[in-house]
């Protein structure tokens, strides 16, 4: 009884090398990207060299120039105007497109696929790139900024809302079909009411994103606080930049808080 028979271990599962292979690949890519030859040449020397002339400017970030405050108000207001208008237009455009992009509300695979492909492409270009191209097209001001934000918003809202429609119960829609409704009628009478909370939720979320994004669109001439950021950075007025960053922080936090409290009440 007490003689221990050698334990028969089951064979070790294969595939345990996979995480290690993943790690090796990540390290290899990181080494390449950091190398001076192919990569971005990470070097502490450059930083040390720049430190001498740059440090005092960075330190200026800690001393906001409060006297600059009045001049920041009009661009700040324009930033908020752009965010609100873009959110509104984006939401209005997105609502029908969301129903178009979801399988339950648009059974036609081809039109759905077409819309999704277009939106994937639209989503892969960041808002600031849109803005910089649009400024060259329609001129400096809030308008190109708003158009850039709308493109950005439609991409997000339609994706999120159509995904939330997909997980909704198909039964009520079937009832509408059984009662002889057209797809459009069913979407309006049944799918829309069930998708509404997701839609409002995403719209508020996009408003938060827009407030954040619209503060920098001016860097390429698309209106708002960014115009001012571009001006102060040209003269390395980091004390003024510091004030602008503080204002962005306050506005973003306020909008996020309000939006979050509304979203929480939404059921």
């Amino acid at each position: 009884m007490s003689t221990l028979a050698p334990l028969v271990l089951p064979p070790k599962p294969r595939g345990r090398w996979k995480p290690w292979l993943g790690l090796a690949v990540v390290l290899l890519i990181t080494a390449v990207t950091l190398s001076p030859q192919w990569g971005i040449a990470f070097s502490f020397e450059a930083i040390v060299k720049n430190w001498q002339n740059g440090a005092d400017k960075v330190l200026a970030l800690l001393q906001p120039d409060w006297s600059f405050f009045p001049r920041t108000i009009p661009p700040l207001v324009e930033t908020l105007q752009m965010a609100v208008i873009a959110t509104f237009v984006g939401a209005v455009v997105s609502l029908p497109l969301s129903l178009w992009a979801a399988r339950l509300t648009n059974p036609n695979r081809y039109t759905r696929g077409l819309l999704k492909t277009v939106l994937n492409a639209v989503r892969s270009i960041p808002d600031l790139l849109y803005a910089s191209v649009l400024v060259a097209m329609v001129g400096v001001g809030a308008l190109p900024g708003i158009i850039a934000l709308v493109l950005f918003n439609v991409g997000i809202i339609v994706k999120m809302v159509s995904e939330s429609i997909e997980v909704n119960d198909a039964g009520p829609l079937e009832a509408g079909r059984a009662a002889g409704g057209t797809q459009l009628q069913i979407n309006r009478a049944i799918a829309l009411t069930d998708a509404w909370p997701a839609f409002v939720n995403q719209t508020l979320y996009v408003l938060e994103l827009n407030v954040r994004a619209s503060t920098v669109l001016g860097l390429v001439g698309a209106g708002g606080l960014g115009l001012l950021i571009d001006a102060v950075r040209t003269f390395y007025r980091y004390d003024q930049l510091s004030l602008i960053i503080l204002e962005i922080l306050v506005v973003v936090v306020v909008i996020d808080t309000v939006s979050a409290s509304i979203r929480k009440r939404l059921v």
């Binding site: 971005i40 450059a46 740059g54 960075v58 980091y238 930049l241 962005i248 922080l249 936090v253």
Partner: peptide, 26 residues
């Protein structure tokens, strides 16, 4: 706080130390 500030502003804030290089972006 970090999440509230767009990355492009962070880049502007640090570029006087790190220079106009891809490193700043990273």
């Amino acid at each position: 706080v970090i999440r509230a500030v767009p990355e492009i502003i962070i880049a502007i804030a640090i570029l006087s130390v790190t220079g106009l290089t891809p490193l700043t972006g990273a």
